[in-house]
Design a protein around this nucleic acid. Sequence first.
DNA 1: ATCTTCACG
DNA 2: ACGTACGTGAAGATG
Length: 880
Amino acid sequence: MSKLIIVDGNSIANRAFYALPLLSNSQGVHTNAVYGFTTMLLKLIEDEQPTHFLVAFDAGKVTFRHADYKEYKGGRAKTPPELSEQFPLIRELMTAFGIQQFELDGYEADDIIGTLTKQADEQQMEVLVVTGDKDMLQLASDQVTIGLTRKGISEMEKYDPDTIEEKYGLKPLQIIDLKGLMGDSSDNIPGIPGVGEKTGLKLLHAYGSVEEVLNHVEELKGKMKEKVAAHADDAKMSKELATIFREVPMELAVDQLAYNGYEEEKLAEMFKRMEFKSLLEKMELKASGEPVGEESVPVEIVEKDSLDKLVSRLDEIEAFYVEVIGDNPHNGEVVGMAFACQDVCYFVRPEMLSTPEGEPLAAWLREGELSKTTYDAHRIQLALAWSGLDTRGVQFDVLLAGYLLDPTQGDPSVKGLADAYGIPSLPADEEVYGKGAKFKLPDSQTLAEHIGRKALTVKRVADKQKEHIETLEMKELFYDLELPLSGVLATMELTGVKVSREELEDYGKELTAKLAEVKAKIVELAGREFNLNSPKQLGEILFEELGLPVVKKTKTGYSTDAEVLEKLEPHHEIIGHLLYYRQISKLQSTYIEGLLKEIREETGKIHTYYRQTIAATGRLSSQYPNLQNIPIRLEEGRKIRKVFKPSEPDWSILAADYSQIELRILAHISKDEKLMEAFQQDQDIHTKTAMDVFGVQADEVDGEMRRRAKAVNFGIVYGISDYGLSQNLGITRKEAAQFIEQYFNVFEGVKRFMDEIVKEAKQNGHVSTLLKRRRNLPEINASNFNQRSFAERTAMNTPIQGTAADIIKLAMVQMMERMEQEGVKSRMLLQVHDELVFEVPPDEVELMKKIVRETMEGALPLEVPLKVEISTGKDWYEAK
DNA sequence: ATCTTCACG
DNA sequence: ACGTACGTGAAGATG
């Protein structure tokens, strides 16, 4: 069966360009789009095994669409020169790959592809169209699949008519109608104002096509009716513009596109010129006979009597890997470990470490100051600790390094890292173990090979990453902060926090009684029994049976979230009870029951697992259970904190939190005079903001003004938009915009920072924190408004939130060292983003207050002081 | 598995 | 004109 791949050249080049950082070779030629294009082609050829291949490009600037509508694609930002200069190289790349390319004056690649897929349909040929452009979905058919590139470039989502039906409820051709209604700002296609994807889909589900919507305009209601009627012609024209022309007069026919693979020499020559070292290496490996995907690794399964062989080579170990099964490392099962030396990987079953013969190996793991490289030292340390084994002194961790190099990288597994760095790949865990209910360990030879291969890959990945860490100036961040922090976290987690099961159960009983009471009330008011936890059933009751007004809808039905319910509160007595039910049942299920499940029987403690490689900003996250979202805002919830106790009699809980750390950081990095002054004089920042923004004296600031100023300050930190602020304050967008303008008039430095950071992000494709933590923003130059705006807000927020994360992490590492120096018995227990929690014996309370303050306030000196508030109590509730 | 809701900073 | 505030994790319902 023949299979044709058609690549939308311009679309993919664009995608590749914005998805990858702006690489350039030693000649200063930018190569990121070429690189992205190359990896995509390699992957396509390998995965799809095409028999026919073509890349289509747009030609010239004026297409037939401009003849009808001269604004077509007007307003679109010019292609940046860094990308245009890569197009000739991409053309050369096609030649090196031996792939035919095609373009035709006056037509876009879409139309060429449309015409070819039509021919393919007629000839019963299987086609895969690869593009980043959703419009192309209109070409899907039984023969034609559309592959849309997802985030990045290497991943692709395939659409056939069935998947389109599933996702949009539309036939492929109706995609044109959808665009006719929605328009497309990037191509300057107008559509109907106010109609986005949601409304567009709703209209099409009801009427089927643009024409039918226009025929039934009388059935529509309110604003919608007016808008559709007023823009009927726009909709018709937009539909025409969005329709791919499938009758391009061209000579080319599908049977002339046969693809016979590439000549490695030609490709290698191109790679050399582009300086694609990793791709070259990969090709050479492949040429040397080792199949890249299925490289076989010499693995030796170590038995008790052959342990001495490994033990004699301990200082030759280049990397090791420990397989921990299960999501929660505190009860993870260690099923094997591999130690990679230059010529062979040794596979060891974990039981061996607890035998006399295994002791030297256990000692090697335990010892510091050794060159140890691994994957996820934190997880290993926890899993092994529960079997009484110590792990220390890891000097390179490829998971952690991968996170720092790209915190949003999709697949953080060993395989994912290997693929990202162009290192010979290995089977996915899923292929070896199966997943979900099908999870099963393979025979020991297969297991040993898989784990051995991972250890070897860890070594190769580490070598690559070390270069990158150097070039991105992340050595300090990695070696002096994140790596030591991983040990600090493990210590805190293993310490755990004492939780009173009895008090938790007592409070649970109280809540159960309240729930029964309020449930009865709700059922009475609703007129029938239903599942109060089901938004669907609740929606039926409220909006169909009780006839309450629909405020907001979700994808699947009526929205019943707290925001909606609060709006409905005056309309019906049931609403207040529902809000109360929601509040209490959340406490019951997530906090009472959830926490009870996590208390270890042996110790009466909860051991959370802090994740160091999840949050895109550099923050930690907490799981099993999450101890970073224990209630505090409402009293009923705050009571939960009473069950968190010191683990020794008469000790106290000491909680220390940074006051306004994010705004202080903003003051420091923006150097805004007003903001710096406010903190240097230790003024109440929200009151001060209110004074400046509303132009009043301190004594004139009332509660409402302060509340609004506070919301503006939050907005500033989040990357403000008038819409977001208006939603938060329940005011109009115009009013919100005015507040923002007034704010920026006063805080000029903040305004300058916001503008600069977005500009910088657009130029470099990334933003950084004070400690050079980095976050790529591939979408910062996207043509899609939503994607781009999101990236812009992220550009403003990440340096702030991320620097706050840097600072508290620094404080944690320094604090752990300081506590050792001081020889205190006190223990660090928890971190909640801007707060550290300790348990402290009575005679150390004063000393700890002093050193906690010194360490946290002095962790990273800024131009404004950092301020820490400390309190103590007999439990976490009292330490407020 | 995905969606909705809600807890925290 | 477009339509989201930034960053997380967990529970329960539902397909």
